[in-house]
Design a protein around this nucleic acid. Structure first.
Lengths: 132, 132
DNA sequence: TTAATAGTTAACTTGACCGTTAACTACTGG
DNA sequence: CCAGTAGTTAACGGTCAAGTTAACTATTAA
């Protein structure tokens, strides 16, 4: 099981727009470092450092090209993304729990009093929310 | 539909460990600013700025306490989290597509040649991956 | 009205991050 | 060998973000 520490590192790696777009690019297929730098019109040293951050934070892995040992090929690692996904799921679930508590409170009030316009509006918001 | 720009803002907001933990705290229930600052043993001005970042980036919303108008109550907004969740899902899906292509390539090779130990190892990795 | 409370804003300092150029390593191919 | 290519590391400058203390606004309550 991964620690929250890793999650923070994943988020800090993805906080830079360039790095987030590199992740997007690598979902398509693995690519060489120079190819990635060129895609974003950035100097190779700059991209090299971004790739190092992504690598040391576990989001990508690097391998030498079998055909040309000068080239380094970067590919995504799924683990950090999966961990982030798990955290997101937890946040969404707890949020839904709050909604449920609120719904029960609203229902209770509805039983005690009569329905008001404001309560109806609230119910509408809840319904919209379920479409996630 | 939300732009990728918002996604970058969401990620930059969550990149700070303190802010990410504030989000965790607020999944439980809305809280007052001072309560949040105290929870993390941080000065109120410092937390106030974190809360401002979370608010301007759409992750939380602020309301005055109905009982005490001095207090400001912060609660989570689900939209940025949902958008992030969507992006994560796309990354995971594309990654699975790569796996599928790789699997097909491996199968083709298996048909042409005989099975090798390395291929078996690859199959094992794939199976492990499906447990998401 | 006045002291206290809740919170934000302002001013300042410190530390980290991003991009560039230059220098370096390692491999390729003639 | 040697010139060229792929990529990283080093050094530098500029910008931005985070925390602290002090000052300010607004509200409460005596």
């Amino acid at each position: 099981m991964a620690a929250a520490y890793d999650l923070d590192r994943t988020l800090s790696a993805l906080a830079d727009p360039t790095r987030r777009r590199v992740v997007d690019l690598l979902t398509e297929r693995p690519r060489r470092a120079g190819e990635i730098a060129e895609t974003f019109g950035m100097s190779r040293p700059a991209m090299s450092r971004h790739l190092r951050v992504l690598r040391t934070h576990g989001l990508v892995e690097e391998k030498r090209d079998t055909a040309d040992a000068r080239a380094r090929v970067y590919r995504l690692r799924p683990e950090p993304i999966d961990e982030l996904s798990t955290w997101i799921g937890e946040v969404q679930r707890f949020w839904d729990d709050q909604l449920e508590s609120f719904r029960q409170l609203a229902d209770k009030k509805n039983r005690e009093k009569s329905r008001t316009r404001k309560t109806m509006k609230t119910m509408k918001t809840m319904k919209k929310r379920t479409g996630r």
